[in-house]
Design a protein around this nucleic acid. Sequence first.
DNA 1: TTTGTGTATTAACACAGTTAGTACAGTTAA
DNA 2: TTAACTGTACTAACTGTGTTAATACACAAA
Lengths: 125, 125
Amino acid sequence: MILIDYKDRRPIYEQIAERFQELILKGVLEPDSQLLSVRNLAMELSINPNTIQRAYAELERGGYIYSVKGRGNFIAANDRLVQCKREEILEEVKELVRKAKDMGVSKEHLLDKVVECYEEGNKDD
Amino acid sequence: MILIDYKDRRPIYEQIAERFQELILKGVLEPDSQLLSVRNLAMELSINPNTIQRAYAELERGGYIYSVKGRGNFIAANDRLVQCKREEILEEVKELVRKAKDMGVSKEHLLDKVVECYEEGNKDD
DNA sequence: TTTGTGTATTAACACAGTTAGTACAGTTAA
DNA sequence: TTAACTGTACTAACTGTGTTAATACACAAA
């Protein structure tokens, strides 16, 4: 479920938080279901509980999970989050299009690539 | 020409190198023209010469500039580089399309956004 | 009461980025 | 030749961040 990439320059807590964000936004993790405890996940990943704690804190700050003292951490509802994430992605599109234009990539070439990539993914469905 | 963003999490040498990459790929900096010396640019940006040295080293490693001992650093020809950069950008498109699909952004919505952003930029020309 | 939760705190360590200072070799022009 | 530039290399010190380690405490559930 969670893989740590030690070659990745980003910190572990950030990798973990981002991975959970994906799983939550995709709906793989059911709202209100319980996450592994800080200590258990730390054991499972062979890292320090503090690092998991930090990842969970980030997720809570972003509204992805909620935590109940003494009981555990739980997945939050994701309806609103999905919308936020979409807007984030469209902002990234904007930035990428800008860069592509700068490098002289034609609009048609760009659109072709988008279509190609979009349909390529359907093989997996 | 070069601006350092201290709020940016990336290191200074990387910001500088990337900024030069942009300027070189866009052709703003003429091939074979001379860059500021390590010491001068360091003074201008109020940072340490070692940091500039590192940025220049990165640029040389990537083929963006070439350096001549005792004379200075010079802009490399950018023809081949532009092609490489384009391929990099198309890889980013692939990744972004994947994320957009995951979040349930329709192909049409995505294409609309690309067209919109592509044409929006033309206002500046 | 015991065990498992989240949470907070402190100390120590590692690593990367940055600064500072020095040194040396090559180029250029006076 | 000399002086003033260049690039390049090296070491030492400082800083911030990520990570680990070890505790401690409050709350919940069996």
